[in-house]
Each structure stands twice: as structure tokens, then as C-alpha cells.
């Protein structure tokens, strides 16, 4: 028996199409498929870990509040000594295995590919919609592409990573709480209209 495609945590509720109010600038929502691993540096091995990350993933481990991108992976700082590495969905466990091999002795690696899910929102309404639940200042003067922050929206922990000036925000949430989070997003976006792609 071969591994099937995993069930997406939002399979039951993210119906593609237009939702909420009609309007010409809706919130655009996509659900990129990602693999994610949490990389946790061993005490005192951050420098070596950074070196290994550069070698294996071609990216510089970002400092607090930031993300770094390479062609086939991104790393987001999530807590002191911890980064969330993400890559497009591949073979089950492949990203974790790659990270574990690259960081052996330097970091613990926890596969979170199924434990987290990412919702990308974009469009001119994005900041306005997020402000209906997000306590952070996402104004261009305070945030921007390459910035990332963990916070809580509608009682659900949420990692916000701005990937584009347009703006595009990637919201990464716990898989078992993705549905209520998505419900909030749809409610918050209804007055501007939501386009799920």
C-alpha cells in the first residue's frame, strides 16, 4: 500500500469561490501545501547550526522577528533557538529527514508538516481584515516583507509571515484549530468579500 495524499485540515470548510460581500477588492485566500519542521538548536550550537543551514538549505538563519528564504525552503524564527523550516510538500518525512541529517548533533528536529497548516491571504483588504483580530501592527512602517511574528488571533496561535509587499501574509496555525481560525477569517473578511482560490 502506498501513502495516500494527506487530508488537509481545512478540507471540510475551505470551499473555493467568492464568499461574503461582493466587491472588486476581495481578500484572496490560498492554501499552499507545505512541509514544515521545527528546528531547535542545541545549547551553544547556534553558530554551527547557522553554518549547517547555509550549507544544506542555502539560507541564513534569521534573527528574531524575521524570515529567510532560499529557492526551495524558508526558515522563520519562532522562538529563541527555534526556527520553523518550510518547503513545498514533498515525500512524507523528506524535509524532516533532510533537516535531521543536516543538523545532527546541532539541533533537535520535530516534523510539524501535519501539525501546522498555512493560509496565505493577500490583496488590498488583507491588513484591514487581519486588524479585526490581530493585535500586531502590520502597517508597512512597522512590518514588511521578510518579517514574521507569532501571535494569537481569535484565541488561536498564529504565525504571521509577510512574504510580499503586495501584501501577502502567510498565516500558519495549529492543524486542530485551523477550522475555527478559518471561520474567524471568513467572518472578518465577509464585509470586504473573500475569494478562496
Amino acid at each position: 500500500m502506498s501513502a495516500p495524499e494527506p487530508t488537509h485540515p481545512l478540507a471540510a470548510c475551505a470551499t473555493p469561490g467568492r464568499h461574503g460581500a461582493p466587491g472588486d477588492a476581495p481578500l484572496r485566500v490560498t492554501l499552499p501545501r507545505r512541509d514544515m519542521v521545527q528546528v531547535m538548536a542545541r545549547r551553544g550550537r547556534e553558530d554551527a547550526l547557522a553554518e549547517a543551514a547555509r550549507a544544506a538549505f542555502g539560507l541564513a538563519l534569521p534573527p528574531a522577528g524575521q524570515a529567510a528564504a532560499a529557492p526551495d525552503a524558508t526558515a522563520v524564527w519562532i522562538q529563541p533557538g527555534h526556527w520553523l523550516f518550510a518547503a513545498p510538500r514533498g515525500m512524507e518525512g523528506a524535509l524532516a529527514a533532510r533537516a535531521a541529517a543536516a543538523f545532527a548533533g546541532l539541533a533537535a528536529v520535530a516534523d510539524q508538516s501535519h501539525g501546522r497548516t498555512t493560509i496565505a491571504v493577500s490583496g488590498p483588504a488583507a491588513r484591514r481584515v487581519l486588524a479585526r483580530g490581530c493585535r500586531l501592527d502590520l502597517h508597512p512602517r512597522a512590518f514588511g516583507p521578510g518579517r514574521a511574528a507569532a501571535t494569537q488571533i481569535a484565541h488561536v496561535g498564529c504565525l504571521i509571515h509577510q512574504t510580499d509587499e503586495a501584501p501577502v501574509f502567510e498565516l500558519t496555525v495549529f492543524a486542530t484549530l485551523a477550522e475555527p481560525f478559518f471561520h474567524w477569517l471568513m467572518e472578518a473578511g465577509a464585509q470586504d468579500g473573500v475569494l478562496i482560490e
Binding site: G65, R135, A149, A150, T151
Partner: peptide, 11 residues
């Protein structure tokens, strides 16, 4: 010190 000023609701 890591994240900047945040609301008490996060703490």
C-alpha cells in the same frame, strides 16, 4: 526582548 512591545493578552 525578542518580539518587541506586545499586548498583555499574549503573555
Amino acid at each position: 526582548p525578542h518580539c518587541g512591545a506586545r499586548d498583555e493578552a499574549e503573555f
